[in-house]
Design a binder for these strands. Structure first.
Lengths: 222, 222
DNA sequence: TAGATTGTTAATCGATTAACAATC
DNA sequence: TAGATTGTTAATCGATTAACAATC
């Protein structure tokens, strides 16, 4: 039912960070220009697709030369707002929550978790990776006062909807949901589901097919 | 370049675990049958799409009655092998690695991380969530002896390719990669990328567009 | 029976891929 | 200049959505 309103296709949106990492590494090695052919060889993607993707950055390449890497990096940073900082609240200080609290990589993406919430009194009051764990009751008030717009949900699935309700009620505009449930939120609130089980399902299925396929090839080869 | 060999479209593959969780919850509440209309309302998906997705399980529904939930659950379990156990090795005991080692949910998906590896001598020899951390040098030998087919990569991006090489060399057939790099592996080895930056990028972009869109709506309303 | 709901076939939509002219 | 590489337009492909007959 969900409609993508962004002018950039979601698959492209997902590939852009990958280009970014790649280009950054290449740039740091001292390279200044790069062609789609070259990128495609390293990233195992179709050069035409890369050209299409990169066109959304607004940066034009030069025939025979390729793209200026620095310009691309700047454009992608600008596009995603990697040089601004989006502050977020996280709810659910379990294993996954902790991992996200400790993930230094977020600063590269202009993303910062500034407080964590949990209902477990043993956790409340503690600090994890220099981020305070507060009681969930404080969420709404703090959220409004700090004007936080992004919420991260890392609670067990049974509690996810309840947490989402609190977030919506507190003015959160975007939810990054790690619980395997479809959250019910008003349409103006954006939800991005990060469902670990989906990735795992795809992986195991691919392995099954790949093994079958390769054993067949062997049989044929006999 | 990658070709999907599975007979089931990847989007469907990704939605099936979500149906599974939902159906399980509904079944535990005592319900025995369910229609696509009903599922669609709860999961905010198109009923026709759900029907299409569920058709891949081989379970047929009855007009006016819907699907037998228990049969669907069984079929999805069978389909993904949730009742077998796939053993895996994890490399990289940082924050994310730890979180995965401690994630109890995996047992539901027939997935089990049986050993962890790291190059940090301070970690080697310790146990994290009852899983031993071993030196990376032991990977190849143990992997072959235990016939492990799945590897999880949670090392920093600079080391990911090196780890992937070790995995391939050791007979790993599927890699679940959490580092934001495109791994180079032989074509018979399957890689599933779980790129956190991509999800985040999609979320922040959606929020931007959504905010713009909603403020426009307000303007129009004036 | 009447109507909810299924499964299937056809139409639409969007992303990827192919073809090709433009140009550094 | 010749050729690598770009950007664009058209063709293909695959998934989603719409239409509808079948049926419990």
């Amino acid at each position: 039912m969900e409609k993508q309103v962004v002018g950039v296709p979601e698959p492209t949106l997902r590939r852009l960070p990958l280009y970014y990492h790649y280009l950054k590494a290449v740039f740091e090695k001292g390279r200044e220009h790069i062609s789609c052919t070259h990128i495609g060889r390293d990233l195992d993607l179709d050069p035409v697709q890369i050209r299409k993707d990169l066109s959304f950055t607004g940066i034009r390449g030069l025939p025979k030369v390729g793209y200026q890497i620095e310009a691309l990096l700047g454009a992608i940073e600008e596009f995603f707002g990697y040089n601004r900082v989006d502050e977020a609240f996280l709810v659910g200080v379990g294993n996954l929550g902790r991992a996200l609290l400790g993930y230094e990589g977020f600063s590269r993406y202009g993303f910062k978790i500034v407080a964590a919430f949990d209902q477990n009194p043993d956790l409340v009051g503690s600090e994890i990776h220099q981020i305070s764990v507060l009681p969930i009751e404080k969420f709404a008030d703090l959220c409004r006062r700090m004007q936080i717009k992004i919420g991260v949900i890392t609670v067990p699935e049974q509690q996810a909807q309840k947490v989402a309700d609190i977030m919506v009620e507190s003015g959160i505009k975007g939810i990054w949901n790690f619980a395997p449930v479809a959250l019910k939120v008003p349409e103006e609130v954006v939800v991005e589901n990060e469902i670990i089980a989906s990735g795992l399902a795809v992986l195991t299925k691919k392995i099954q097919t790949s093994l079958r396929f390769n054993s067949k090839k062997q049989e044929v080869a006999k």
